[in-house]
Amino acid sequence: MYLIKLFGVLLIVICCSLIGVFKSNSLRQKVRKLSMLIDGLNALYNYIDQGEFELNIAIKNAFCKCRFLNFSAVKILCDDADLKNEKPLIEEFFMRLGQSTKKIECDYINHFKTKMQACLNDARDDVVNKCKIYQILGVCSGLTLGILLV
């Protein structure tokens, strides 16, 4: 009987800990994806500055590693859960590309890159500040629940 209770408590602790781990992992994924996006913006800037490719080809080449972007025929969508706060900014950015001269396009990319860099810095701060808290909260809430239920 006690073994079953012990197993139950362990299960609850593990589940709650995993929730904490997944939540902290989501923050780390956000940092990774924003870094990939900024690398893609750098590449896109170079493609447009060199004036070698049409926009759709330049975008596909620059963001080929960004699997969280959906390149549909009409527009580019970002449906990733980790980037839900940045989604409107990202989609609007891609929608407004290709309408201006090279200089204005490059300035626009730089401006958007600055915004994404700020988001990346915030995400990195979140990783430092919140990851451990989520993990500890996960373990503690698991233990509390376990004790209460026992």
Binding site: G51, E54, L55, N56, L97, G98, S100, T101, K102, E105
Partner: peptide, 10 residues
């Protein structure tokens, strides 16, 4: 007409 790439036809 510019294939959304006006910068290429500047």
């Amino acid at each position: 007409l510019c294939n959304n790439s006006i910068y290429l036809h500047e």
